[in-house]
């Protein structure tokens, strides 16, 4: 199989004062390329920690994590930054766009940190066209609706052609109709581009659109269910 995520015995321990909190305990699973996976669990289940670890924002205390063929568990901060830049696109619940920049400027940001000096504008334009915002490129975030802002965020996530898109409650700040649109956008991009999609959510309806649902409970892997999404 072509694994894009290989997680082996991931464990994350936080030390808060004198108490050790085990946010993740010995979690192992794989994700194949092009798959849509949902990570679910009640609050405190280690969902966010899982998301941070898979997104290379944080290192596991122990365990092995191979992302698109690169072992990232032991990398230093700058190496992680580079992996995030090349292999991961983030979509956050609260959009996280920079208000000073236009839609185009926001989408260009990952390209800037990739060290690209030429062709940035064109690639950012293409990404915005792909999410259906060809006519909103020079708008600033406050001139856009919530759904449009999230579309900009999706364009920003895919502009670097990442191996996976990590979506953290992507519809959490949107009403159900717009939320559905964003989900459809993410799923259609997954189909067209073959980008692996990992969605962290507590919304059963969203999760069911994935091919597999990974359920966490008390930091441990509870169960992996099959969702209603098409086969990988």
């Amino acid at each position: 199989m072509d694994w894009v995520i290989e997680a082996r015995s991931l464990t994350k321990t936080y030390v808060m004062g004198e108490i050790e909190v085990q946010a993740l305990r010995d979690v192992s699973f794989d994700v194949t390329r092009g798959e849509v996976v949902a990570i679910m669990g009640p609050s405190g289940s280690g969902k966010s920690t899982m998301m941070n670890t898979l997104g290379c924002l944080d290192r596991p205390t122990s365990g092995e994590y191979i992302l698109d063929g690169e072992s990232v568990a032991q990398m230093n901060d700058d190496q992680l930054a580079s992996v995030r830049n090349r292999k991961i696109g983030f979509v956050f619940q609260s959009f996280n766009l920079l208000s000073r920049l236009t839609a185009l400027g926001n989408v260009e940001l990952p390209l800037r940190y990739a060290g690209l000096t030429q062709g940035r504008r064109e690639r950012a334009q293409k990404a915005l066209e792909a999410v259906g915002l060809a006519d909103r490129m020079t708008h600033r975030p406050y001139e856009l609706s919530g759904g449009q802002q999230q579309r900009v965020a999706v364009a920003r996530a895919l502009v670097n052609n990442p191996a996976i898109i990590m979506a953290d409650e992507p519809t959490g700040n949107l009403d159900s109709k717009v939320g559905k649109e964003i989900m459809n956008l993410l799923l259609s991009l997954n189909k067209e581009l073959g980008t692996t999609l990992v969605i962290v959510t507590h919304d059963q309806k969203i999760a069911e659109q994935a091919q597999r649902i990974i359920r966490l409970k008390d930091g441990e892997l509870d169960v992996i269910e099959k969702g209603n999404g098409g086969s990988a």
Binding site: D78, A81, R84, F90, P110, Y113
Partner: peptide, 11 residues
Amino acid sequence: LRKALGARKRD
């Protein structure tokens, strides 16, 4: 956010 998008410390 910038760090999540790939900004290194020196950036």
